[in-house]
Computed example of a mutant assay.
Amino acid sequence: MYIHTLARTGGSWESLDVLGAPADGPVAFGGDLGPQSLLAAYRRGLYPFPAATEEQRIVNELLHEADVAAGAVKVLPGREEPFSIAWCSPDPRPVIPVREARLQRSLRRQLRRTPEWTTTADMCFERVVRQCRTGRSEQWLTDDLLRGLCVLHELGHAHSVEVWEGDELVGGTFGVRVGAVFSADSQFTVRSGAGKTAVADLTRRFAAAGGLAVDVQRDGDHVRLLGARPVPRARYLALLTGRRATRPLPTERLPARRLAG
């Protein structure tokens, strides 16, 4: 079945019909988590969701084996166990237009009361990614994915934002930049509000770099409070291939309270 499906995909990212894929669930399985594959996937509007355990891989297979057999979900080359990596592209996609980003009133008040908080970008990328998987029940940030993301960071495609309380890292977020879109993968919070502060700071820095939108991948009340709104997949894919943000992401240390306006 897998060999037959692979023959239909042509073995390339370009062969995936992301626009016509199901709105919910994976677009594809398989492939690998090397930097070239990751960048190709993000450029196609996909992000990875690896299975960290054999049990999770089996669940993927049970849930989606029929879709794969029918050709609705493709299988990419690269792994003996293709169901160990899912590639997702939700429709609609929650996106924060950088000029419309906002903070809820309680967080603005908190930032005004915590003048010691500062933010930076790209100061400790790997540390932020590792913090984002600490204590999570779903360990989709596997070692393979972490290694691939760190190489993307070294190549200038992946970035992190850090929130500091003095010398202590209390929050952060990271993701991959594609043209005028920043796809934010995850965030972490040690102090209440620090993760949301990191995302808000990312939108401000990305706007300064000429970016248009921050994709937060998964919808929810917490991202709606930051200004996220659902964008149809076709429009999201057009954003990826439209105007590019050519200026570098500002990395200097800045006071977090500036975000309160």
Rank of each mutant, 00 (worst) to 15 (best):
P250Y: 06
G220V: 03
L62T: 12
E165P: 00
T53F: 10
G135Q: 07
E100H: 14
V176L: 09
T114E: 06
A228E: 07
V161C: 12
I3T: 14
A184H: 04
H153W: 09
G220A: 05
A260W: 04
K196T: 07
R229N: 01
H222M: 13
R224E: 13
A207Q: 14
G20Y: 06
D219Y: 04
E80R: 15
L249A: 03
T241C: 02
S160A: 13
A245D: 11
E65Y: 10
T197F: 08
D144K: 14
L259H: 05
E65R: 15
D122N: 15
R57L: 10
P250I: 00
C132D: 10
Q36D: 15
L19E: 14
L16H: 03
G211Q: 04
G179T: 01
L146E: 15
T197A: 12
L202F: 08
P77L: 06
P232W: 05
S137R: 15
R244V: 05
P48T: 03
L146P: 04
A69L: 11
R133F: 03
P250N: 09
A234V: 01
E80L: 14
C124D: 13
F29Y: 07
R93V: 01
I96K: 02
N60H: 14
G261P: 01
D24M: 03
S37G: 11
G172Y: 05
W13L: 08
R204N: 09
A260I: 10
D201E: 15
A245W: 04
F29G: 01
N60Y: 07
W164K: 10
T119F: 12
R204P: 11
V199K: 00
R257A: 11
V129A: 12
L145S: 12
R247C: 06
T114G: 01
T173Y: 02
C132G: 12
A228C: 11
L226F: 12
L145F: 13
L33T: 01
G78Y: 05
P35G: 09
L239G: 13
W117M: 05
A86L: 03
P97A: 08
V170K: 00
S12R: 12
A260E: 05
G31K: 09
A72T: 01
R235H: 12
R233G: 02
W140A: 01
A69M: 07
E14M: 07
E80W: 09
